[in-house]
Design a protein around this nucleic acid. Structure first.
Lengths: 114, 114
DNA sequence: CCATATAATCGTAAATCTACGATTCACTGT
DNA sequence: ACAGTGAATCGTAGATTTACGATTATATGG
């Protein structure tokens, strides 16, 4: 009995993209990591581990998710790995989410039940 | 051996709130449901079921998540249940996400590795 | 070469999410 | 009172997420 297929593909591309962006931001650790990297400009994994209340391997996983989503880039620099924000991706992500809210807020006033 | 505790509580309130908003939007079905309700003004569960490629019980679950998050309100109206957007909550949510992006984008230019 | 340090990866466990069918509940209309 | 309809809830199964410790890989420094 097969269930729990991935039905996400059946929604509009726009909604899928917005949902993907939201998914990346759906854990406070990932938001905190992004803010930390943005704030410091330079950021090495060890610094993030020192700041956030999570184990090194857990941080590394969250970093990988941010990398996979394209929101940050990281390059090995000797022993350390230097991460930085991919601003183009951040702006695209921002727009994807913004569009959802704008499309919703555009309809304000057309309420039904009251 | 106890693992996988919920560590989310250890992050800042702001980041937690933003992550919660993002979580609600992290499935295209929920975005599509919000847009459908906003577009129609009036919206009954059955209409959403007819439009989206999901079973009635699945839609009902997504609606419950949106209700729990406070983004919509629903009242029983005879046989039908009329849902509408809670605009105040939408705006709060929008602001919570917006603040994350603004805080990030504020730091643009302070890059490290290049 | 060897000890050390940084960070990725692996293995795992628990929790949560997605999804559905079946059932139940509540209200209509007859 | 009873059949029918719309929607919530229940039970479930499988997938994914969160988290950690242990291990591995790689580079540096002596």
């Amino acid at each position: 009995m097969v269930m729990a297929f991935n039905k996400k593909a059946e929604f509009s591309k726009k909604d899928q993209k917005a949902a993907e962006v939201a998914k990346v931001l759906s854990h406070p650790a990932r938001i905190a990591i992004l803010k930390t990297i943005a704030k410091r400009g330079v950021c090495v994994c060890g610094e993030i581990v020192a700041i956030l209340p999570l184990a090194q391997s857990t941080i590394s996983n969250h970093l990988k998710e941010l990398l996979d989503a394209g929101l940050i880039s990281g390059e090995l620099d000797g022993l350390n790995c230097c991460y930085c924000i991919n601003w183009a991706a951040i702006k695209k992500s921002h727009k994807a989410i913004l569009d959802v809210f704008l499309e919703l807020e555009n309809r304000e006033g057309m309420d039904c039940c009251k």
